[in-house]
Amino acid sequence: MLHAPRSGRAVTAWGSIAALVLLLPVVAVASLALGANALSPGELAHAVLHPDGAEGDVIVRSLRFPRTVLGLIVGAALGAAGVLMQGHTRNALAEPGLLGVSAGAAFAVVLGLRLELVQGLPGMIGAAAIGAASAAVVVHTLARRSIRQGGAALVVAGAAMTAFLGALTSAVVLLDAKTLDSYRFWAVGSLAERGQETPVTVLPFVVAGLLLAAVNARSLDLLALGDEVASAMGLRIRRARLVGLLAVTLLTAASVAACGPIAFIGLLAGTLARLMVGASWSRGVLAGALVGAVLTVTSDVVGRLVAGPGELQVGVVSGILGAPLLIAVIRRRELIL
């Protein structure tokens, strides 16, 4: 990290954040207008301002509007979760998908549905939260010794956790054709056809998670100097870790329950956010949430455009965009933050 004068660095950081805020409406409008059935600006304005049940109005209001809002919410959640996880583990590769947290949420949801313990989205979010938190705690505990060096053991533990939970998930869905059929569409990570209420239902969870993340980010600035220094400065380390875990759990669980596991958004958002705002975690969480929202909606639009008349699910697009980035991160940068 280059040490530019502090004020200059902060100006660049806030400039990037402002640019992201301006980018949000642009991608949102694009998401409303573009797709298998592209709309002109006039049609779009018509649908937004004076809807009268024309074809364009229906497409925008009942299909594209919910998925755009959902994309913004879920993207912000995953982006902030990615930044938080990278801060707590001091690992440039930490994100919900790679560390098994999403897999934990997914398994809990599938198991809950199969055993008919949960119903509807709130129940799924609850199950996902339990699964996500358990997976996060197990991976973090097992690889804790290596976290000080910020090494690859964490990533390997995450991969093992993902494989383990993935196998259990396969076992559950393979025993039941009905679960299998809905599972495969959910598992790929998609914003499409999630219903009108889904954004409304997940919003409170994501807002709570983002608030916790914002609070926690200040602790991360201290934790970045090492546990000893942070605690000497009066930070309660255990509480900071717990708040972080709670925030990551809420954010991941809400997004996984709503859209299925979407890989790499957290990684992309975390990496880009740090490039933009530097070493400040407070600004990093904000930037990460914005980057996540922009990326998710953009990936969704790209998926609709490249594969028309069908579509590529957002999880596939983010996977295809994210994997090269992951490898670039491994090759170019230090893994330790």
């Binding site: 990533v155 996977g319 994997a323 491994i330």
Partner: peptide, 14 residues
């Protein structure tokens, strides 16, 4: 390798 495996998983899901 972990990165390659994750990318492969995304493609298989699709």
């Amino acid at each position: 390798g972990v990165g390659l495996a994750a990318a492969g998983t995304a493609l298989v899901s699709w």
